[in-house]
Amino acid sequence: MNNITVNFRKATKKEEEIVRKEIGKHFGQEGLDSLQNRFLWIKDGKIKEVCALHPNIEAIVKTIPHNLYFAGIPIGSIKNNKFQLEIEGSALIRLTSKKVLHVKTDQFLYGKSIFTDNVFQFDEAFQSGDLVIIEGRNNIHYGVGETSISSEELKSALSNTVIIKGSKNIPRDRGWYLRKGN
C-alpha cells in the first residue's frame, strides 16, 4: 500500500535560478528577501510545483525516502523553464515587498479581470507586464496578477480598461481555494 511514487526533491541550481530571476525581475531585492532562510524544493509531476521550506523542515524531509506528498509552502510552478508565481508565493513576497495594487472589487477572487476603475491605490510604480500583488479592502491579500498597462498609463486610462486579466484556471487568486481547493 505504501511506496507511492511522488518525487519530491531539492531544486536544482538551474531551477533555483529560474525562480529567483523571475521574482527578482518583478519584485527586486525586496522580493528576493522573502526567500531568505528558506530552501526551494520541487514536487515533480505534470508541472513542477515549487515550495519553500524552513531549514528544520528540510532536515526532516531529507530523511524521508518516499511517499512525501508536500512540505512547506507552495510558492509557484515551473513550466517550460519559466517560473509562475502563485497565491502563497505572492503572500510570502508581500511580507517584504510594497509592490501592491489595492482594489475595491472582489471580482478578482472569482477569476475575473480587474478594470482601472476598480483600482483605488498602488504603493509602487509598475510597468506594463509587471507582476503586482493584489489586495482588497482592509489590505486583505487577494493574490497576484500581471499588469496590462503601467502605473503611469493607469492615471489617464478609460475606466473600463483591463489592468489585470483574471483567469479561473491559474492559482493566482485566493478564490482558487473554493474553485479547485478540494
Binding site: 526532516i60 508536500f70 509552502i73 503572500a91
Partner: peptide
C-alpha cells in the same frame, strides 16, 4: 492529501510535511 495541502496553504502553515502514508 490534495485538500489537506490546500487547507494548509490557505491557512499559511509552513511547518508541516504531508505524507501519503498508512
Amino acid at each position: 492529501c490534495r485538500s489537506l495541502k490546500s487547507v494548509l496553504a490557505r491557512m499559511g502553515v509552513e511547518n508541516t510535511i504531508i505524507l501519503q502514508y498508512d
